[in-house]
Write a protein that binds this DNA or RNA. Structure first.
Lengths: 216, 216
DNA sequence: AAACGACTGGGACACACGACCCAGTTCGGC
DNA sequence: GCCGAACTGGGTCGTGTGTCCCAGTCGTTT
């Protein structure tokens, strides 16, 4: 086959491994399956990587980095908080519906990391990057929607991530679209309830709910 | 070794498999590892089970049934809704803290089921049983606390399960106890906000928070 | 006590896997 | 055109796996 630089080969192998993992699961991502997906020989694999573990490790860090990039996706302010949150959730959910294997692969890789001693720190990093992304969205929403949050953004980010994880998990298990819709409605409501309009030109129609609980 | 009936052997193998899975993960639950844990020979394994898959399948159904039993645990009404929900969450979380491997094993088994064609239906069943359990708690709380819920119990159960899954996942990833505490506080608040006191002897001191959002 | 069937131990088989090796091929610089 | 280094194909090794087998042992029934 064609001649490719080791660097290109490494990234090709990472993508191939990801494809195999998404299609057949982590346990099926053997060196042979991966090189078959990438259409190269076993020797090429071991020329690019010292071991399978090294590849998997790179796959995971790649995935984490990618997630961080993806979640920098622009937030589209829709006037009120609830609508904005709801739209962002819908965008994520559409992605999930289109590529369930991908999110499933994320979960599996996370569990794989938890079971591998040298990779033990990665789940915390991966989860941290989710929270950072969520916090970024919440921060970005403040000036765009003319609000502040009644609790620390970090805390709200954690709530948002927990709900998103729960939503993902539930849908992966039962594939109930209608239930997912209702769940997203709730998430939008509960997040919107933490928004406080700042003085000045108040955004309209976002005070349907009273500031719940307050900063406790 | 001692002489044991095939039936006893089957359940012993299920428990052993569960122990191995919790300790080392699903991928490490080989026939040899399982029989070593159960302290019996390979022949005994294949006398009791036709194949490893048959065992794993039994492990999963066992786990689902067990979960259903566990979640019938009595709800301890603490006067107000928030306190009751918070205490129930804390009880679950304490269990999680004590045996993280156990919950981790549940997740892994779920993913294993998703990847195995004949087991594809199990995740939905497992998740359904979680929701049923949550719904049972919410139903039980109604007469005990003198409340009704402003939304269908099924829907609230789904929210509760999603939040619990998210909580579990987050804690497994970063082991942040303080953050888990704050998250549970939020869950208790948000669930309590769906409670409507019924006319009659109103429960005391549960109106610290205004009914948030209400029935939207 | 004899015989039957439930149960066990140890070993064997075929296969898939990760890792490795080495003789060849092709490319870039001289 | 040549040379050294980057790269490739095919094969091989040792190990771990699921499954199976069979000679043997023990309890139960008659």
């Amino acid at each position: 086959m064609a001649r490719v630089s080791a660097n290109d080969r490494r990234s090709a192998l990472v993508r191939a491994a990801l494809a195999v993992i998404a299609r057949d699961g982590v346990h099926a991502a053997t060196t042979r399956a991966i090189v078959a997906e990438a259409d190269m020989s076993l020797a090429s694999f071991h020329y690019a990587y010292r071991s399978r573990d090294e590849l998997i490790r790179e796959v995971i860090t790649f995935v984490v980095d990618q997630q961080e990039d993806v979640s920098r996706a622009a937030i589209a302010p829709l006037g009120d908080v609830r609508g904005t949150v709801r739209a962002a959730l819908q965008a994520y959910f559409d992605l999930l519906r289109e590529h369930p294997e991908r999110e499933q692969a994320m979960f599996e890789l996370m569990h794989y990391s938890m079971r591998t001693a040298e990779l033990g720190a990665l789940p915390a990093i991966q989860h941290g990057s989710y929270r950072t992304a969520a916090a970024g969205l919440l921060e970005a929403a403040m000036p765009l929607l003319g609000i502040t949050w009644s609790r620390p953004v970090d805390e709200l980010a954690r709530i948002l991530v927990a709900l998103t994880d729960g939503l993902t998990y539930a849908w992966l298990a039962d594939r109930d679209d209608a239930a997912a819709d209702r769940l997203m409605d709730y998430v939008a409501d509960t997040i919107a309830a933490f928004a406080i309009p700042v003085s000045g030109p108040a955004p309209v129609a976002s005070e349907r709910t009273l500031p719940q609980g307050g900063a406790q």
